[in-house]
Amino acid sequence: RTVKALYDYKAKRSDELSFCRGALIHNVSKEPGGWWKGDYGTRIQQYFPSNYVEDI
């Protein structure tokens, strides 16, 4: 599953992803609480806010 970032996001913790608008995040798994995990660049299975992305 791949999603596309709608907005920039700067990680606030070491287990979160930072990305820019338009970024493609791969291998996404839905987690409870509005935070999902995914791969972006060299960061593997890190958290990001689900309301910052859309399915593609």
Score class of each variant (00 low, 15 high):
residue 11 A to M: 05
residue 36 W to G: 04
residue 6 L to Q: 05
residue 6 L to T: 10
residue 7 Y to A: 14
residue 34 G to V: 13
residue 47 Y to S: 07
residue 42 T to C: 09
residue 44 I to N: 09
residue 2 T to R: 06
residue 35 W to S: 08
residue 7 Y to W: 12
residue 48 F to M: 01
residue 43 R to S: 09
residue 26 H to N: 09
residue 45 Q to Y: 03
residue 42 T to R: 14
residue 18 S to E: 14
residue 23 A to R: 03
residue 11 A to V: 00
residue 27 N to G: 03
residue 27 N to Q: 11
residue 47 Y to N: 08
residue 16 E to V: 04
residue 40 Y to T: 08
residue 15 D to S: 14
residue 12 K to N: 10
residue 32 P to E: 15
residue 18 S to F: 01
residue 34 G to K: 14
residue 18 S to T: 10
residue 37 K to Q: 06
residue 36 W to F: 07
residue 13 R to E: 07
residue 10 K to E: 11
residue 14 S to P: 05
residue 5 A to L: 00
residue 12 K to I: 06
residue 37 K to Y: 07
residue 53 V to E: 01
residue 45 Q to S: 05
residue 33 G to C: 11
residue 2 T to V: 14
residue 13 R to T: 06
residue 24 L to P: 02
residue 32 P to K: 09
residue 43 R to V: 07
residue 16 E to Q: 10
residue 30 K to G: 04
residue 10 K to M: 06
residue 31 E to P: 07
residue 50 S to N: 08
residue 1 R to M: 12
residue 53 V to I: 04
residue 43 R to W: 10
residue 37 K to P: 04
residue 16 E to G: 06
residue 31 E to N: 10
residue 24 L to F: 08
residue 28 V to K: 04
residue 39 D to Y: 07
residue 43 R to F: 06
residue 54 E to F: 13
residue 41 G to Y: 04
residue 4 K to M: 11
residue 10 K to C: 13
residue 36 W to R: 03
residue 32 P to M: 15
residue 41 G to L: 10
residue 42 T to M: 13
residue 47 Y to G: 04
residue 23 A to I: 04
residue 51 N to P: 05
residue 47 Y to C: 06
residue 35 W to L: 12
residue 44 I to C: 12
residue 54 E to K: 14
residue 37 K to A: 04
residue 41 G to H: 10
residue 26 H to Q: 13
residue 6 L to R: 10
residue 41 G to P: 00
residue 18 S to D: 09
residue 18 S to P: 01
residue 44 I to P: 02
residue 8 D to K: 08
residue 9 Y to C: 15
residue 20 C to P: 15
residue 14 S to H: 11
residue 40 Y to R: 05
residue 31 E to F: 14
residue 36 W to A: 09
residue 37 K to T: 07
residue 28 V to M: 00
residue 18 S to M: 00
residue 17 L to Q: 01
residue 53 V to L: 01
residue 6 L to H: 02
residue 53 V to H: 00
residue 17 L to G: 00
residue 15 D to Y: 08
residue 15 D to W: 07
residue 55 D to R: 07
residue 12 K to V: 09
residue 47 Y to F: 13
residue 42 T to P: 15
residue 6 L to E: 04
residue 43 R to I: 06
residue 13 R to S: 12
residue 2 T to D: 06
residue 40 Y to F: 14
residue 30 K to Y: 14
residue 22 G to W: 02
residue 42 T to W: 10
residue 5 A to D: 01
residue 16 E to A: 05
residue 28 V to N: 03
residue 43 R to A: 14
residue 10 K to W: 07
residue 18 S to C: 05
residue 39 D to M: 01
residue 28 V to A: 01
residue 39 D to K: 03
residue 35 W to G: 04
residue 40 Y to L: 14
residue 5 A to V: 00
residue 40 Y to K: 15
residue 41 G to I: 04
residue 48 F to V: 01
residue 36 W to I: 04
residue 50 S to P: 09
residue 34 G to F: 06
residue 18 S to K: 01
residue 48 F to P: 01
residue 17 L to I: 10
residue 19 F to G: 04
residue 16 E to R: 05
residue 42 T to V: 10
residue 19 F to M: 03
residue 22 G to M: 05
residue 33 G to D: 10
residue 9 Y to L: 01
residue 10 K to S: 13
residue 31 E to C: 12
residue 23 A to K: 03
residue 48 F to L: 05
residue 30 K to Q: 09
residue 22 G to F: 02
residue 43 R to Q: 13
residue 2 T to K: 09
residue 52 Y to S: 07
residue 41 G to N: 15
residue 34 G to C: 08
residue 23 A to H: 05
residue 50 S to V: 07
residue 43 R to H: 14
residue 37 K to W: 01
residue 48 F to H: 00
residue 44 I to A: 09
residue 46 Q to T: 06
residue 4 K to T: 07
residue 7 Y to N: 06
residue 20 C to M: 12
residue 34 G to I: 11
residue 27 N to D: 11
residue 28 V to W: 02
residue 40 Y to W: 03
residue 12 K to Y: 05
residue 41 G to F: 05
residue 31 E to D: 09
residue 26 H to A: 11
residue 35 W to P: 04
residue 48 F to W: 02
residue 55 D to Q: 08
residue 33 G to E: 08
residue 48 F to E: 00
residue 21 R to S: 08
residue 9 Y to F: 03
residue 4 K to V: 14
residue 2 T to W: 01
residue 36 W to S: 15
residue 30 K to A: 09
residue 5 A to K: 00
residue 10 K to L: 06
residue 9 Y to P: 03
residue 31 E to G: 15
residue 20 C to L: 11
residue 43 R to D: 08
residue 4 K to I: 14
residue 55 D to Y: 07
residue 30 K to C: 12
residue 12 K to T: 11
residue 42 T to L: 10
residue 6 L to M: 10
residue 26 H to Y: 11
residue 33 G to S: 11
residue 14 S to E: 09
residue 53 V to K: 00
residue 39 D to N: 06
residue 31 E to Y: 13
residue 41 G to K: 13
residue 5 A to F: 01
residue 21 R to V: 11
residue 39 D to I: 00
residue 15 D to V: 13
residue 10 K to N: 13
residue 14 S to N: 07
residue 26 H to D: 10
residue 27 N to L: 00
residue 4 K to Q: 10
residue 51 N to F: 06
residue 27 N to P: 02
residue 39 D to Q: 00
residue 18 S to N: 04
residue 51 N to Q: 11
residue 36 W to K: 03
residue 9 Y to G: 00
residue 52 Y to R: 07
residue 12 K to W: 06
residue 47 Y to D: 03
residue 47 Y to V: 07
residue 46 Q to N: 11
residue 38 G to C: 03
residue 6 L to F: 05
residue 12 K to G: 10
residue 12 K to R: 12
residue 53 V to N: 00
residue 17 L to D: 06
residue 30 K to S: 12
